[in-house]
């Protein structure tokens, strides 16, 4: 870990302007991912801006009938919120499928969106990694890639986005609200928030330097049956091999987002039209153009079969 300076801020605006003042600054909230990465010098911010004191820790109804989730709402609180459990059960279930109780107590909504890949080569600073060190190459390609991406990847990077919460947010059509250092705000559809790697895999999201997430907003509830099925080798406390978040209506229509297979939560709206025809048809649409490795080609079958399990459960 490299030495860094540290400050606490009291408002979102202060946070954004503090970030603008200092080159190489990062925000810290729960720190459940950032601190680990700093200890390994995968992240080496010169300055940390602690945003835990800026509020943004409420879940409030929106005029449109949805919910606005403050950036600092902890995963535990979000998963337990009555409104979330009733109308956005997918989100609650996805959160509870992630990490451990202790981590969820610390982890925040914004921080969870920004957690970095768990590619083992990203974590080993002896190895080339374009995400960690642009231009150094990718050791994962041709290496051990069982956990890694099968679609949306590039010749520079096959890492996955590891989280669960964002998969649910993607299916729920959430919006990410931010404030920039100049004080302007914007609302980014979750679909556009995480980037595909292309030849710049070191940039995970569309956030600009110093831009701070203030909330994630959910549109009005869409009803339906909510299922989150996370597949992994052990029963808890592991990242997904594949996860399927689905909302299925009585008429068989619905939405599906996938985790564990791509650099971002993976959803192909066009594929959802095939939902009444079953898992195989949907999976074909979701995975068109997939480029798995020898180690992770099983994920294609696994997506289809997990989707089958989810659809059986919603019929159930």
């Amino acid at each position: 870990m490299r030495p860094f300076s540290y400050e606490r801020v009291a408002t979102p605006a202060e946070a954004a302007s503090a970030a603008a003042r200092t080159q190489g600054a990062k925000f810290i909230a729960g720190g459940t991912n950032l601190l680990d990465l700093m200890k390994l010098e995968i992240e080496a911010p010169t300055h940390l801006i602690d945003v835990n004191g800026i509020g943004l820790d409420r879940i409030e109804p929106t005029p449109e009938g949805g919910l606005r989730i403050g950036a600092l709402v902890r995963n535990t609180d979000l998963a337990a919120d009555k409104r979330v459990r009733k109308d956005y059960a997918l989100l609650s279930r996805a959160l509870l499928a992630g990490a451990s109780g202790q981590l969820r107590n610390k982890a925040t909504t914004a921080g969870n969106l920004l957690q970095r890949t768990r590619c083992p080569y990203f974590y080993d600073t002896n190895q080339p990694c374009n995400k960690r060190k642009p231009g150094s190459g990718c050791a994962a390609i041709g290496g051990y890639s069982r956990q890694l991406g099968v679609i949306g990847t590039s010749e520079a990077c096959i890492a996955t986005y590891p989280g669960d919460m964002a998969v649910a947010l993607r299916a729920l059509d959430a919006t990410v609200e931010t404030v920039k250092p100049d004080g302007s705000t914007r609302a980014i559809p979750i679909a556009d928030f995480h980037r595909l790697p292309g030849d710049t895999p070191h940039i995970d999201t569309v956030l600009e330097p110093g831009e701070l997430i203030t909330a994630a907003t959910l549109p009005a509830p869409v009803g339906g049956t909510h299922v989150y099925h996370k597949v992994r080798d052990r029963a808890s406390y592991a990242f997904a091999l594949v996860s399927v978040g689905a909302i299925v209506q009585r008429d068989g229509s619905g939405r599906v987002a996938l985790g564990g297979i791509a650099p971002k939560p993976w959803r192909v709206e066009a594929a959802e039209a095939a939902l009444p025809r079953g898992a195989k048809a949907v999976a074909e649409g979701l995975l068109a153009g997939a480029k798995p490795t020898g180690d992770n080609a099983f994920k294609l079958t696994l997506v289809e079969r997990t989707l089958g399990a989810v659809l059986a459960q919603t019929r159930g």
Binding site: G143, A235, S236
Partner: peptide, 23 residues
């Protein structure tokens, strides 16, 4: 898990090397 090109165990932490949990 072995990286057979570079000769090392790739999953060298407790997130990558899974052992049973209570569940």
């Amino acid at each position: 898990a072995i990286d057979k090109r570079f000769g090392f165990f790739v999953n060298h932490d407790l997130a990558g090397y899974e052992v049973p949990v209570h569940a």
